[in-house]
Write a protein that binds this DNA or RNA. Structure first.
Lengths: 290, 290
DNA sequence: CATCCTCTGAAAAATTCTTTTCATGACACC
DNA sequence: GGTGTCATGAAAAGAATTTTTCAGAGGATG
């Protein structure tokens, strides 16, 4: 077999599973900012990847090249192809032209959403919410709708590891009143409510408010009716070239919040995570002894 | 004066009058197919231009470079500038926040992940998966782990609206064997398996394969062991300035897939969605008459 | 816990690349 | 034609890069 027709990137990917740790590290480094990162000398790229030069030699030989010079020659050809032919390989993500691949159009949209959302977002709001969520004395309740339920679950799963007293409400609204009953003053209800707002969210929010709970809402730019009852609201852009709305930026904020909370209570969290990991391991052992 | 701001091409042009015959010949050769022609060793470009290596050294020094390596380094930078990073690097995303605010750092990381993932991602893979999922004769099974379960659910919820025969496996692996039993040849198992890979995923994938199912895996750049059994694998970048991995880009691909599938079967989907919306409305009416 | 195996990088060896030196030849000017 | 200057490349010297060797680290296995 010859390496000719496939790109170096392809070859790396197809061999990725066979690579050792240091080699994977090197492959990462090469694919990062590919193919330019492979233009320098073997010494340079070894240093950039944090591995030794022999590792580079071994890997390129494993990939099927005669040696580093051979490897680099292929890379040069690709660079040439890429530069002299802008359509080749670089058509993805590049042009905004109509008819581009759905991935490109989506990427453009997401970029726009992210930028717009961050421009509108008050960092003070973000910081306040982060500090609210960091307060371990407050109970945390997560709820989402049909589509956003997954986001609520994602948030919940992480926060459950980080801190105690977290609860995920079923997306089925019939059980919500019971949860509301359990809320105490100072507890926090995190609501995900995006276009095609669920009517029951308002009832839930109202009930929670009556019990003295703080409310945080994730919604779109038009705003869930529940947002009016909220202490803090994140208005996220959700536009996508699709019949559906995009939750990507919402997830982005959720992840940033997770990190902010985790970071502000790291010492306590660390212990918790250790214990939890232990429990998971044990569960596995129980499940499949040996 | 430093060479920094001007391109190598500019420098050559501005010095062209001062060059000797052999040097002009060399300069021609370099400008022809610029800048790729300057990527090789000094020997190579000397040969290509039909001059001797000392001529090359003399010329690049005359142009103001320290030596050939210096000259080539500048060329590499230009190649990089020409090829890379279509996504503008933003110093600051959120307004009124220091560049080091977690939101800004997260935004940088996510954009890097997105860019890298799209660079590595083969659109053919994407299209193949989209067309697999569009085939309504195939049953669809979604499964995720502890953290990725939410992603599986998100994907599932949408696909359930778009097409029939979709199933979400519980994240609890004890029930997986039964699901595997139900799979038919041609069915598709969509696996989300990201760092801290779940051991049972491999068993599930193996069982599914035995039943003749196709496997699609969403994993990270290091690759779930289950990816080896998969027909198609998405290697998504998940790095974040956090103790946790980021699922944002994974969600991005999921959403793009949802749109691709929906789009390819829009007529059928439209009817389905209408009916479904009707059902949801009815449910609400039942629940809360009036 | 001993043994095997694989992976890894330090260091040496081999090779290639880069620069310098220098001899030759071309050309201009006296 | 003599002389000097400059351009040029062959070849040597010098410096790097690339490859190979090898020993130790670390992990798996019995």
């Amino acid at each position: 077999m010859t390496v000719a027709s496939k790109t170096v990137s392809d070859v790396i990917h197809s061999h990725f599973g066979l690579l050792t740790r240091a080699e994977k590290q090197l492959a990462e480094s090469l694919l990062d900012n590919y193919p330019v990162s492979g233009l320098g000398s073997i010494t340079t790229i070894a240093e950039n990847a944090g591995v030794s030069t022999p590792t580079v030699v071994r890997m390129v030989q494993k990939l099927g090249f005669k040696g580093y010079p051979d490897f680099q020659a292929h890379l040069h050809l690709e660079v040439e192809a890429t530069i002299s032919n802008p359509i080749a390989k670089h058509d993805r993500w590049a042009q905004n032209a109509p008819g581009t691949h759905i991935l490109n159009r989506f990427a453009d949209a997401i970029m726009g959403n992210l930028r717009q959302t961050l421009t509108d977002l008050d960092t003070a709001t973000f910081d306040s919410v982060a500090s609210l969520l960091s307060d371990r004395k407050r109970g945390l309740y997560f709820v989402g709708g049909r589509i956003t339920g997954a986001l609520a679950e994602y948030f919940f799963t992480h926060m459950q590891v980080i801190r105690p007293a977290t609860t995920l409400l079923s997306s089925n609204s019939s059980s919500w009143p019971q949860y509301a009953l359990n809320m105490n003053a100072g507890d926090i209800l995190i609501i995900f409510d995006i276009r095609r707002y669920e009517q029951e969210m308002v009832s839930l929010a109202t009930a929670a408010r009556k019990r003295g709970a703080e409310i945080v809402v994730f919604t779109d730019q038009w705003g869930s009716p529940a947002a009016k009852l909220a202490r803090h609201a994140f208005r996220v852009r959700i536009e996508a070239p699709s019949a559906w709305d995009s939750s990507v930026v919402t997830l982005f904020i959720v992840e940033a919040l997770i990190e902010a909370v985790q970071n502000s209570t790291w010492d306590e969290t660390k212990e918790r995570m250790k214990t939890l990991e232990g429990l998971f391991e044990q569960t596995k052992l129980f499940r499949k002894p040996g």
